[in-house]
Amino acid sequence: MGIQKHFKAFHDTIKLGRKDDAYASAREKDDSIKEAIKKTFDESGYPVVDDFIQGSLAVHTGIKSRDTDFDIDRAIVIDSADAPENPIEPKRKIKDVLEKRGFTNVRIKKPCVTADYKALDLHIDFPVYKRSGTDYKLAVGKAGSSDENKEWADADPKRLEAWINDDSSYLGSKRDKHDQFRRLVRYVKRWRDHQFSEDVARKIYSIGLTVMIKDCFSPSFDQDGKPCDATALSQTLTNILSRGYFIQQMEEGRYRVKVALPVNPWRDIFDGSSVNTGTQLFNKLSRLRKKVDQALAENDEIKQCRILNEVFGDEFQVPDQKNESKTRKAAFATAGCVGTSQGA
């Protein structure tokens, strides 16, 4: 297994799923708040017709937060026929519910209502949609927004989830390849959290990283069908850096990043992001690829892990050399690894 066993241990340490025991209290709080919102919306004349988890938990790419916070992204859906003209109105109702239930820092942001529940290390986002048939529109606007800055805007959360979860373009062992794709997303999200300042990391959106990796994913498995995550990551990063997401600016070595949503409204995920954000992302992705390639070229597992620990953080553990007297060589881990290009 070589370096792959260390990637597996890293993945098992950082991954988070909605059904995980560590998530139990957050899940119970989410369910309770959801019922309170439904009651309030019903009393207000626009009953909830659907609700669903979206984001990383819906597509199985969630990771444990470094600050121990649990994130919930819960969509609330009302019928278009019942929806108020003002999209801020239902968001104010959610804000009232959250404040009464002990949440702090409750804010009506442009795409959602967001709040924290410190007792459970819980951060929660509630986007509100109105739906007509299969068409969704998102309640957009902050509290106090002028008419031109608030709207029911085109959105397609279900198709976005389906696009990320789709494995139809993979040849052969589709499930194994899609599982590898999800692992790569988790690795890169943890890398972002480790390598960037908190302020910059917030602007390197998880959905942007996920779309780039999905678009550029290059699966890699050895001749026995065993995954080679390091090779897959290297090849996928090479594709990302050459795909055209990074737009060279007039000043040499400066970039903007542009990644289009793969579904309606097809907007740029990083719209409005600074040149500084794009430049940092390009340079650090380039360095990540270089470090992964450096690890692949090493012949010693401990040295490989030291290199990867540097880019991913201490959750990518370096084995104790005293307990690794029979360290396997990396050549065993990477021999026969082949990359395939059936990405999404």
Rank of each mutant, 00 (worst) to 15 (best):
A297S: 12
L233H: 05
R306P: 00
F312A: 08
V318C: 04
D300R: 12
F270P: 03
Q249S: 14
R254F: 12
G253S: 02
Y255S: 02
N283C: 02
T327W: 13
S234R: 03
D224W: 14
D314K: 05
Q304M: 03
E301H: 01
R287Y: 12
F246W: 09
K258L: 02
L209F: 09
A232G: 07
P319A: 13
D224V: 12
L261G: 10
T327V: 15
A232P: 06
V257Y: 03
K326A: 04
S273M: 10
F246P: 05
K290F: 09
Q280W: 09
Q304I: 00
K291Y: 01
Q235G: 12
Q321R: 12
N239P: 05
Q223T: 15
D320A: 10
D268N: 08
F282T: 00
L296R: 14
L296G: 05
R267E: 15
P262Q: 02
I204R: 00
K303A: 14
K284D: 11
V263S: 07
S325M: 10
D268G: 00
I269K: 05
G225V: 12
K226L: 14
Y205L: 14
I204A: 01
L281R: 11
D224K: 13
F270D: 02
I302K: 09
S325T: 08
R267H: 13
S218Q: 09
F270I: 03
S234H: 04
V311R: 05
V263Y: 08
D215E: 15
F221D: 05
Q317F: 05
M212A: 04
F282C: 03
T231G: 01
N239E: 14
D300C: 13
K290E: 08
A297C: 03
G313K: 10
E315N: 06
V257T: 03
N309P: 12
K226N: 15
L241C: 04
F270H: 05
A260C: 11
L237N: 09
E298I: 00
V263W: 08
Q249E: 15
D215T: 08
K326Y: 11
Y255N: 03
S273T: 10
V259H: 07
P319Q: 13
E298W: 01
T279Y: 11
V318E: 02
D268L: 00
T231V: 11
K203F: 01
S206T: 03
